[in-house]
């Protein structure tokens, strides 16, 4: 984990973005952190930039996270992606798993974010 990584946080909630950003920056001061506040801007960002970690919210005002997930996976085949959502129903967990992506139920805490980063190794 010596090199500088690029972390993208996709979430319509400022609070969530802040929490994740704070946890990441506290542990990895060098990392670059980007924010996308809705699905559309997230898609635009993954087209033009390269990311190592992407945290993705599901329930967003424009398009749901799972809808854009294949697009993101296509453009960022090497990124480690995690879905962070308040929708904790079993079908949701299954759907996320079927995309080969890990699931993290909100509310988000430090251990959760660190586990997500740790999974990439």
């Amino acid at each position: 984990m010596s090199s500088i990584k690029h972390f993208l946080i996709v979430d319509d909630s400022r609070l969530t973005r802040m929490i994740i950003a704070k946890i990441v920056s506290e542990h990895y001061q060098q990392w670059q952190i980007s924010h996308a506040h809705d699905a559309q801007s997230a898609v635009e960002m993954v087209k033009s930039q390269s990311f190592d970690f992407i945290s993705l919210d599901h329930n967003m005002p424009d398009v749901t996270g799972l809808t854009i997930l294949p697009d993101i996976q296509h453009h960022q085949p090497n990124a480690h992606i995690g879905v962070f959502t308040a929708n904790i129903q079993r079908v949701m967990r299954q759907r996320v798993a079927s995309h080969g992506v890990s699931f993290y139920p909100k509310p988000i805490n430090e251990a959760m974010v660190l586990r997500f980063i740790g999974e990439a190794n």
Binding site: S13, L15, A86, I88
Partner: peptide, 17 residues
């Protein structure tokens, strides 16, 4: 507003579950 919304979002998520 944003914080409260997210809290309700999480709460509703649990309720829905």
């Amino acid at each position: 507003n944003d914080t409260l919304c997210e809290l309700f979002n999480i709460g509703m998520g649990r309720a829905a579950n």
